[in-house]
Design a protein around this nucleic acid. Structure first.
Length: 423
RNA sequence: GGAGAGAUGGCCGAGCGGUUGAAGGCGCUCCCCUGCUAAGGGAGUAUGGGGUCAACACUCCAUCGAGGGUUCGAAUCCCUCUCUCUCCGCCA
């Protein structure tokens, strides 16, 4: 959520920021609502003030034993106007809040213009594209024929867009997960956390998935509703909800492994082959809570932490700075890491590292005590995949394949593979 | 699932219909005192929002788990919900 003050005082500046995302803000509607709100709030508070004053007088008069019928009559006359004004104000505030909650974050100045991924900017590349000396196969060919990856069983158990892994392949995924958790904990100073995989609506509102993106979520039937998490970002970032951190506690850095569940509504027919786009996948997530002045630097650092995993696995990748139109709802600036997939002969997203400024923090009431002012102020939140484990597995399979169709185990995973060096 | 007890500011904890945004304590900030340290004395110390204002500031409203209700007036009374704790049952 953006600062309500912007909506009141700098609507045109805000609208200009949103234009970068290709969104037109209905300024007239906001101005009209705001004018009505202001008038109504002033009126309501005047009635309330009068009521409070009369009630106080009644108390004093009664204590003295005076007759209060006159005062009671005045109060009765007031009641109707007050109730009407309060109802109207509640309706106006709800409408304003609903509208404001559905407005996405403003892009940072460093974010390029553009409507979709074609306008993203490549920042850097790392690694050499592999030259196999044979026609590389994709992970479906490599895994299914050797009964390491099984999509058909997954359909039997659940539906399309799920996968079953067997034996050393299941272990390889676990090895990747373990390696990522260990690496971020030991090398980058993150604290590992374990969190619920179901969250309530408040949590999803806090990180910005609700109200706009409900159709992408799996919702359970309990009341009040719980949702399967689409990313660990949701539970982990919500650890800061309603919290006030002391300056010395920041930055808070969490690393967390969870499964992620996405309905992938609206992506019918997209990436249907293989395990690139699934309803359920494993991910190791990085989350940071930082003081506002550090957030841009923290974003660069967090991105480099995700890159370090790709480098350790010797997987070629490139870093893309997303244009305004391609960023997520809550993000102010996002780098995507795209890994090279020999089977597709292209780069595919394997991590998305975003800096939200105070957008999520405002929704979460996540604050820190600024030593300069002594006051609680909104902190900044960041998150990034470090990495999407399912896609990393896929990348390892395709980049480490041999002419015989086997898969070598990357060196850094050997300690986790119990002697398996090739599968 | 059954029975009971709770939820108050950064923390602990009083208050159970009226100048209570909330006693007292702890913590924190500033000042005084003090060879040092310890102890002591004084003052201050919630959050969100509105209005006036260049600003300092002033003022108003809301908030005692959440939402309703009763009342001129609710932290206090009533209802619903959520969560926590204790005991019993069940259970990985």
């Amino acid at each position: 959520m953006l600062d309500p003050k912007y909506f009141r005082q700098a609507l045109s500046v805000l609208a200009a920021g949103l234009t970068k995302r290709g969104i037109t803000l209905d300024q007239e509607r906001f101005r009209a609502l705001e004018t009505a709100r202001k008038a109504c709030q002033i009126e309501t508070e005047q009635w309330q003030s009068q009521r409070n004053g009369l009630a106080k007088q009644v108390g004093i008069a009664k204590a003295r034993g005076d007759n209060v019928s006159d005062l009671l009559q005045q109060s009765a006359q007031l009641a109707e106007s007050l109730t009407a004004a309060e109802l109207k104000l509640t309706a106006l505030l709800t409408e304003l809040h609903t509208l404001q909650a559905s407005i996405p974050n403003i892009p940072d100045e460093s974010v390029p213009l553009g409507r979709d991924e074609h306008a993203n900017i490549e920042i850097r590349q790392w690694g050499e594209l592999p030259n196999f000396g044979f026609m590389p196969r994709d992970h479906v060919d490599l895994g299914v024929s050797r009964q390491l990856i099984d999509f058909e069983s997954a359909v039997t158990l659940a539906s399309a867009r799920f996968v079953v892994l067997y034996g050393p392949m299941a272990r390889l995924q676990r090895a990747l997960t373990q390696f990522m958790l260990d690496f971020h904990s030991a090398q980058h100073g993150y604290t590992e956390v374990y969190v619920p995989n179901l969250v309530n609506g408040d949590s999803l509102f806090g990180t910005g998935q609700l109200p706009n993106m409900e159709e992408d979520l799996f919702k359970t039937h309990v009341e009040p509703a719980l949702y399967l998490i689409p990313t660990a970002e949701v539970p982990v970032t919500n650890l800061a909800r309603e919290c006030i951190f002391e300056a010395a506690q920041l930055p808070v850095k969490y690393v967390c492994h969870t499964p992620c569940f996405r309905s992938e509504a609206g992506s019918y027919g997209k990436d249907t082959r293989g395990m690139l786009r699934q309803h359920q996948f494993e991910k190791v997530e990085l989350v940071q809570f930082v003081a506002p002045e550090n957030s841009l630097a923290a974003h660069e650092a967090l991105t480099s932490h995700a890159e370090a995993i790709l480098q350790a696995l010797k997987l070629p990748y490139r870093v893309m700075l997303l244009c305004a139109g391609d960023m997520g709802f809550a993000a102010s600036k996002t780098y995507d890491l795209e890994v090279w997939l020999p089977g597709q002969q292209c780069y595919r997203e394997i991590s998305s590292c975003s800096m939200m400024k105070d957008f999520q923090a405002r929704r979460l009431k996540a604050r820190w005590r600024n030593p300069a002012t002594g006051k609680p102020e909104l902190l900044h939140t960041l998150n990034g995949s470090g990495l999407a484990v399912g896609r990393t597995l896929l990348a390892v399979i395709e980049n480490y394949q041999t002419a015989e169709g086997q898969i070598r185990v990357p060196d850094v995973l050997l300690p986790y593979m119990n002697g398996i060096t090739i599968l």
